[in-house]
């Protein structure tokens, strides 16, 4: 029996060279594709463009575009398993997240300063849309899984719980990027950015409740009754139990 030729082991480039630091503030090539690659692999390049590069507006524009594109894909998949009209989840998820980001911008600016980071508002906006951009990319990655589980059940609770779980994971990665960026920018106190991350998560969850129903069928585009999101979830679980 022929044995495969086993090549002699040689040290590979990965072990020979100094491994690159993903948070190193290095310049990057323009283009949405490069911004996506930088968000995933080398966020330091985005920080460089936002704080000292020549194209901060272009990068912020790309980040907003990536956020909207990712959320539209996530909204589209949600629509495919939803009982409402197809465009409702797309509009509600995209516009709702963008609204949550905009109202959280002033607090991020102040909390970044409390953490020991002094940045112009434009750079803070760039950081905020890096958080939403990475979260939107992670949400896009989950869309096949959501579709598989959503089409495998007649229940609304299962896909609802899955969407919530996926949202928590995506925001966890997004806000984790914020903390890493803070560290790279010389953050002195981590607590404030962590507090802001918690607030941002709460705001997005409340916005999702204010724009309900996203998954189920509703009588109108917007809800008639105001509720806190925990109260809404408790009602849904009770309703499913009955």
């Amino acid at each position: 029996m022929n044995q495969p030729d086993i090549p002699a082991p040689t040290p590979s480039p990965a072990t020979c060279h100094i491994k690159p630091d993903p948070m190193a503030l290095l310049p990057m090539e323009p283009g949405t594709g490069n911004v996506i690659a930088a968000l995933l692999k080398t966020p330091g390049a985005i920080l460089h463009e936002l704080t000292g590069g020549g194209r901060p507006r272009l990068v912020v524009g790309s980040l907003i575009g990536i956020t909207l594109m990712g959320l539209a894909v996530f909204g589209g998949i949600t629509a495919s398993i939803s009982e409402s009209q197809w465009w409702h989840p797309v509009v509600k998820i995209s516009a709702g997240t963008l609204f949550a980001a905009v109202i959280c911008l002033p607090s991020l600016y102040i909390f970044a300063a409390l953490s020991g980071i002094i940045l112009p508002l434009r750079a803070v906006a760039g950081l905020l849309f890096s958080v939403t951009g990475l979260s939107a990319l992670i949400l896009t990655g989950f869309t096949p899984l959501i579709w598989v589980l959503g089409t495998s059940t007649a229940s609304v609770i299962v896909p609802g719980a899955l969407l919530l779980l996926v949202w928590l994971i995506a925001v966890f990665f997004g806000t984790g990027l914020l903390i890493r960026c803070g560290r790279a920018l010389g953050m002195t106190h981590r607590l404030h950015l962590m507090l802001w991350s918690g607030m941002f998560l709460l705001v997005t969850l409340q916005v999702s409740c204010a724009l309900r129903p996203i998954l189920g069928a509703g009588k109108s585009f917007m809800p008639q009754e105001k509720k806190f999101f925990l109260e809404h979830w408790a009602e849904q679980i009770r309703f499913a139990g009955d």
Binding site: L40, I138, T140, G141, F142, T143, P144, L145, V148
Partner: peptide
């Protein structure tokens, strides 16, 4: 196929 995109991102 279901996890390819997500695994690549992670």
């Amino acid at each position: 196929l279901t996890n390819g995109l997500l695994n690549g991102m992670l």
